[in-house]
Design a protein around this nucleic acid. Structure first.
Lengths: 397, 397
DNA sequence: AACGTATCCGCAAACGTTACCGATACTTTT
DNA sequence: AAAAGTATCGGTAACGTTTGCGGATACGTT
């Protein structure tokens, strides 16, 4: 009853064990092993998922070949206007959507550039994203954004995902925890363009887009000194970040230039977080000989300090001058206004995007300047202006 | 000199035109057409791009087949521990990174869900993103974010890109311009899960995550009335957005409940933009019988109004009460503080993400509640509090 | 021996597209 | 009319994975 699929013999068939719960047979004649496939299962269609129309569908419906359809869709040569129109019409009719995945696979490029930012909580990184996004869209690229949430492991996993998804280039701003850069070196080895911005590091030979943190910091502290503040504290960021080191350097340089002595117990470096800002701020304000001004590494820390000063009844700017960094939107509105250093966020995004595009589209090794340093701007508001006649910004009384 | 590749004949070869600028020949004997491929070009290697190690490379180096490597890498069955280890070791040695593109193609799913937001400028959408991101990452999904920049064409192009990239699901908040929803219906037809949040619309049968705009709006206006304001204006949003309509409805309901007459020239619906806010705000404040309070559709408009009032010397909250919507971070700091309606942004993101995951991972058609309405919260600050004894929030004097 | 079972591994077909190359029919030149 | 050129289309091998199905041992059991 059972005949060998090979030699059609019937007599020499014998059982030969089970494979995946199916009886196996062997033909003693031709030594052919086989199982009987039961075609009774109701042929579960091509795919249970709804079938997306493909180029092949169009080809079948139009009566041409896949290659012709592909040519028609891409406006390539070697095709007559009639067939092209027929194909396009059929494509519209069948509601064809190209499968970018297949395209990417064969071209091994995705037209997507990735961006990893440490956080989203204030408008700083979003503004950078906006700047970069605009340029990239214009150049025909998509932007995939991931946020590392200031966590090194997440940053690593993000870069891995970016690699697996074969992005054409990466824009990244590092976590405050990041001390190891192997996950970035992979990109070098793979030849995938990389641009660091804002939170950069040495040790990676990629172009960097930063602002002149040193100068900005210097300006901030100089401004405080010129307004008569003397004993200026610095609430800094984590020292593994270049920005923190540069801002510290600017602080020290300004203090030195004007002959102010730096009291080292008033220079604190810590993580970026509201909680830390409160803790360090409390420490500074509770010193028995407390500083008469504080230069904070970012606006949110500065604002925390302002709020604490308010609670303690310390008058700003008379008893305490405060300067932040970055010009968050809320800084314009808080109390007398927070003096701060504006960063050209949009420009950071734009130049980063521009560079990554250049790196991608240059066939050969492109030598880019290693670093672009953008200028910062001092925004003077009430939190540091002892001379009240200078008031120009709008404020509530 | 030229011999036929087929029959090796020499005498019967003749030219037969050009193909892509290369001389073509035909053998009269065997009627075989051919061009001479010149192998003198320096064999440009497999790919000019650096070769990424693939599963095939591992297979060759280990001496097993592709399938075995694949099984080893994924921890599947049908493989001995020794070979598995050997493969894994070789994979590590060759620094193998899986090609997600190929994987996605064969599985026709990307483990990526897309998110389209209208803008990034304030912290509202970023906070939603944070909430969604957290859940998605935990569930093993990636998040691709695009911003439509409040432009309908960009929104359409974004959805197209998402479709082409075969995202597994889409979270979208509509543009203020969006009046046509065909680009969303495509997702329905394709069977790709879709969740609308915040800026939703009817006409699309997808679950929606919104806040109780009506209630929030009602609370805001009621609060104004209870603080003694009488002639309350409303600066609303574009009426094609449900949020705008709901907030308008809440405004009207509160006014009606307390028997206040609505002066229709003090109800303005417009686009979300700082410029528009200034124009409409100026109009309201310049009315010869100007309102004594303004309920604005969002905080940035409210802040614009506060600033204009300041310029004009109108005292807040004594001469003018102001309430916004959304509780942007700067609202806590501006002047006397802006009373506003807080939206649970994080929760919006989380429930949206949760729903999209359920929709994706449910095999069958899943019936989800059509809508989730999250609660809002009234945050009372100085801009609307005529009874000064109630002050509790910290403020600068 | 003859048969049954379990384990491990390879083959090859998908997934949807692109691009190289060959093939045909037709037009133009010599 | 042969030869050469042009325009248009099809065949097919990639791209890198996954996976169903079988083949081939090795070992245990009648």
């Amino acid at each position: 009853m059972i005949s060998c699929p090979k030699c059609s013999e019937v007599g020499s068939i014998m059982k030969a064990g089970y494979v995946r719960n199916k009886q196996r047979y062997v033909c003693k004649d031709c030594n052919y092993f086989f199982t009987l496939s039961n075609p009774d299962q109701t042929t579960p269609r091509k795919n249970s998922r709804r079938h997306q129309t493909t180029i092949i569908d169009i080809a079948r419906s139009t009566g041409v070949s896949n290659s012709t359809v592909s040519r028609a869709l891409h406006g390539h040569a070697d095709i007559s206007p009639e067939t092209r129109n027929a194909v396009l019409e059929m494509a519209a009719q069948l509601d064809y959507q190209p499968n970018q995945l297949a395209y990417n696979l064969v071209k091994s490029r995705t037209n997507t550039i990735g961006m990893i930012v440490p956080e989203f909580t204030n408008s700083f990184f979003p503004n950078i994203i906006i700047g970069a996004h605009e340029l990239l869209i214009e150049a025909g690229y998509n932007l995939t954004i991931m946020q590392s949430n200031e966590s090194y492991p997440i940053e690593v996993s993000n870069t891995k995902a970016m690699l697996a998804n074969r992005i054409d280039g990466l824009l990244i701003s590092l976590t405050q925890e990041t001390n190891n850069y192997d996950h970035l070196k992979v990109f070098e080895k793979r030849g995938i363009p990389l641009v660091l911005f804002n939170r950069v590091c040495d040790y990676v030979s990629a172009p960097k887009v930063v602002v002149n943190d040193f100068e900005g910091s210097f300006l901030a502290v100089e401004h405080l000194i010129l307004n008569g503040y003397d004993r200026i504290a610095h609430l800094g960021g984590p020292l593994n970040l270049l920005v923190s080191r540069e801002r510290l350097r600017g602080y020290r340089a300004a203090m030195e230039k004007y002959g102010k002595t730096i009291e080292e117990n008033m220079v604190i470096q810590g993580m970026f977080s509201q909680q830390k800002a409160r803790i360090y701020g409390k420490y500074l304000l509770d010193l028995e000989n407390r500083p008469d001004a504080i230069f904070a590494v970012n606006d949110s820390s500065a604002i925390e300090i302002m709020l604490m000063a308010l609670e303690k009844g310390i008058r700003i700017p008379d008893e305490l001058g405060v300067v932040g960094f970055s010009d968050n939107p809320e800084s314009a509105y808080i109390g007398p206004g927070l003096t701060t250093i504006r960063q050209p966020t949009n420009e950071i995004g734009k130049t980063s995007a521009q560079w990554i595009l250049q790196l991608i589209e240059s066939e050969e090794e492109l030598i880019l300047p290693n670093e672009k340093v953008l200028k910062t701007e001092l925004i003077v508001r009430g939190s540091s202006r002892r001379n009240r006649s200078l008031i120009i910004n709008s404020e509530f009384g």
